[in-house]
Design a protein around this nucleic acid. Structure first.
Length: 749
DNA sequence: CGGATCGAC
DNA sequence: CTATGTCGATCCG
């Protein structure tokens, strides 16, 4: 589907964005003008539940914008200038990495479905045609577009716009066939081309061009209409919007040409910038890509790291220059819309059906996931999702339904005594095992126990040398967050809860026959029966296992390992973010003392209670520190993570868990920490009242922030450990100091 | 992690 | 006569 079919958002008088776009109303033929189209759409739309919900969603976007504007007001000129410096430093780097040597083509077949239908039925050619149903159209031909009929518009509204419209039902089989024919041709140009849906593809024809100097092609077919050549994927895609029907566009591989192309290009044309982002940026006065570049400093203060970095790439015309195979799939889902269903019975059977269909595709790809998400849309179009993560991966109908029906049951209970009135239900499975984790699953418990015995250390990978494992650990756990208290605690509580409690809950919600769950229940019984037999300790969590059933034990250990891996992966990404913040922040120490930084830097994270150690280093210039951090980073991380892994091991083995202070429960702790991490204003406020004493070094801590305090404790523990390991003297103090101070700065988040 | 939201088609 | 989809990824708390 090409871009003219896409939304385009028409603002109605009341500011509501409708999903239906406006017609360009090219001259000739009869058709409707914009005003008339809008009027008809409005009449058909107004008052509907759908429309009411659109209004609501629109309000929410407006609130977001308001929030953003408030944030913007708080930004000082000085902050902006600093951000400018930071961002521009990045711009220079990005410029240097610009690669113009590839030639990427994006091929997009206009009104593909409609074109195919017209080919098969020539009498449709001169008529307005749309493909889809009365409820929803997938695409329309150009005749129909003159009436404002376009993709993503319900057929009944299209009929109002264009009473003579012919609506042809979808026939995916046919489109797939045609699409395959086309792909065969594309293969000649790039055997590794990347298809995007049925009617789009990216080709990297760099090599092809080298082979055949006599390019411009002539392989065009009637349904090819757009062919774009450009130095990277993003640009190629955007070329497709130029010269719309039946045209081509090429961007020559020169920086200048790229920037010219972008200058007046509306950001909305950029893939990845949708309705909402467009509106948010518009509120900041940004409409074109060049404006996006001009406001780069501001954007870096208002948007998340990922977002503004993406904005920067866009405005510089940077994009990936090769067609990478999309990585592993992260989730798989299925959902269905229907006319209102409001009885629990129907809802459960529908749910089961969805699970069955999902299980089918899931198994085809050999995927198993640990999180099941239920999606519900009520008759007012309000969408809710409810997720649950279970211990072992699921992939069969029964396994998925077992979790999903529970979620559904909760929702039914919540709204009782009213019936749950839904128009859509979906089921999703995510949290797939990575390839890495799959390997573990092949291992039997014996080899685990063996390797543990041999090396006496956790998370060693079978088949790898010790050293490799250490290296790996440092990669996967650079932060070496000590002690993963949360992990252990969570495991503990899970072990305690499951499986009996879980099952109890499931059964409670199971309004229907529990015949389907006989299997699970049986497993539980087995587990309980074997309670008193020989006790085995899990080599990962060190919990004593109540079962001596090999299968059970293996499963438990696999789960423990998976969790460890998942946790580590999360830590990596968290740490990456923090590092960025730290680096960005560092040069600011040049002119300001830390306290001021804390007060004035909304979007930056401050050193909080680590300010002292940072100041200690303030003799070195910021630039030096900057590079120091970079160059020492990996080394330190490796050391630290090894240390803390050892520490964890020791502590866990000896039940030496240092007491951290946490308010109510683990969850609260996590929330507090995260809130602090992401808060856009300086979150640390020194309240003088209470004084906490570090249980390790016994010194009074001036902070009352739990996070800061706990961090301090962690640092102390690390120190103590290092001393112990080096027999209190051998560890080079210089290294140690550097380690400590930088660590503090770097890990401060 | 769970929930909401975004964007592509 | 009625009647507004499906999917995956990512952000945020």
């Amino acid at each position: 589907m090409d871009d003219t079919e896409k939304v385009g958002n028409s603002s109605c008088s009341d500011g509501v964005l409708l999903r239906m776009g406006l017609n360009d109303n090219k001259a000739g033929m009869q058709g409707l003008d914009k005003e008339k189209i809008n009027k008809i759409i409005m009449e058909a739309t107004k008052g509907s539940r759908f429309y009411e919900n659109e209004l609501k969603k629109d309000q929410q976007v407006n609130q977001r914008i308001e929030k953003m504007m408030q944030l913007k007001e708080k930004i000082t000129t000085q902050q902006l200038l600093k951000a400018q410096l930071q961002v521009d430093k990045l711009v220079i780097e990005l410029e240097q990495s610009r690669n113009l040597s590839s030639t990427i083509v994006h091929i997009d077949m206009d009104a593909f479905y409609a074109a195919v239908e017209m080919r098969d039925c020539p009498e449709l050619k001169e008529k307005p045609v749309a493909v889809g149903s009365m409820s929803m159209l997938s695409t329309s031909n150009y005749h129909a577009r003159r009436f404002g009929v376009r993709a993503a518009m319900p057929g009944f509204i299209a009929k109002k716009l264009c009473p003579h419209l012919t609506i042809v039902p979808l026939n995916f089989e046919k489109y797939g066939k045609v699409s395959k024919e086309v792909r065969e041709i594309l293969t000649e140009y790039d055997p590794n081309f990347m298809p995007m849906g049925l009617d789009e593809a990216y080709l990297n024809i760099t090599e092809h061009l080298e082979e055949r100097v006599r390019w411009p092609e002539d392989k065009r077919r009637f349904f090819f209409n757009t062919k774009r050549i450009a130095p990277n994927v993003m640009l190629a895609k955007m070329c497709s919007d130029r010269n719309k029907p039946n045209g081509q566009c090429r961007i020559s591989p020169e920086r200048r040409a790229v920037l010219d192309f972008l200058r007046d290009l509306p950001i909305r044309k950029v893939p990845g910038i949708g309705k909402v982002t467009e509106k948010m940026l518009k509120a900041l006065g940004i409409v074109t890509c060049s404006e996006l570049y001009q406001q780069r400093a501001l954007l870096s203060l208002l948007f998340s790291e990922a977002s503004w970095r993406n904005f920067l790439d866009i405005s510089l015309g940077l994009g990936s220059t090769h067609l990478e195979k999309d990585g592993e799939r992260k989730s798989m889902s299925i959902e269905r819309t229907f006319s209102e269903i409001n009885t629990a019975e129907d809802q459960y059977s529908l749910c089961r059906e969805l699970c069955r269909d999902l299980a089918q595709v899931l198994q085809k790809e050999g995927l198993k996931g640990k999180t099941v998400t239920l999606k519900l849309k009520n008759v007012n179009f309000e969408v809710k999702t409810r997720a649950s993560t279970v211990l072992s991966s699921v992939s069969t109908e029964e396994e998925i339904f077992y979790v999903a029906k529970d979620l559904l049951g909760t929702e039914i209970d919540n709204i009782a005594p009213h019936p749950l009135r839904i128009r859509l239900m979906g089921v999703r499975v995510s949290g797939f095992l990575s390839e890495e984790e799959k390997k573990y699953h092949q291992k039997s418990i014996m080899s685990f126990l063996k390797s543990e015995k041999e090396i006496g250390f956790l998370r060693l990978q079978p088949g790898k040398s010790n050293e490799e494992c250490f290296t790996k650990n440092s990669e996967t756990s650079p932060r070496g967050s000590f002690f993963d208290k949360k992990r252990a605690a969570r495991q503990l509580s899970r072990e305690n809860l499951s499986p009996s409690e879980t099952v109890g809950k499931q059964l409670f919600h199971d309004r229907k026959s529990s015949a389907d769950f006989v299997k699970e229940t049986k497993n539980v019984t087995e587990l309980q029966n074997s309670n008193m037999s020989k006790i085995i300790t899990c080599p990962v969590c060190f919990e004593e296992q109540s079962s001596n059933n090999l299968e059970e034990l293996n499963r438990h250990i696999d789960e423990c390992l998976s969790r460890t891996l998942v946790k580590d992966a999360m830590e990596i990404s968290n740490n990456d973010n923090s590092r960025e913040n730290t680096l960005n922040f560092l040069p600011q120490f040049k002119n300001e003392n830390v306290d001021e930084c804390q007060k004035n830097k909304p979007d930056q994270l401050s050193g909080t209670d680590q300010s002292a150690s940072i100041s200690d280093n303030s003799t070195s210039s910021c630039t030096e520190k900057f590079s120091q951090v970079i160059s020492d980073k990996s080394h330190r991380e490796k050391q630290l993570s090894n240390l803390s892994d050892i520490a964890r091991n020791v502590c866990m083995k000896q039940c030496l868990f240092p007491k951290r202070i946490s308010k109510d429960n683990e969850d609260h702790f996590e929330k507090t920490e995260h809130a602090e991490e992401t808060s856009s204003c300086c979150s640390f406020e020194a309240t003088e009242d209470s004084v906490l004493v570090c249980p390790v070094c016994n010194s009074k801590q001036k902070t009352t922030s739990l996070v800061s305090f706990n961090r301090h404790v962690d640092v102390c523990l690390n120190k103590g450990l290092i001393k112990e390991l080096t027999e209190k003297k051998d560890f080079p103090s210089k290294t140690y100091n550097m380690e400590n101070s930088n660590t503090v700065g770097e890990y401060a988040h």
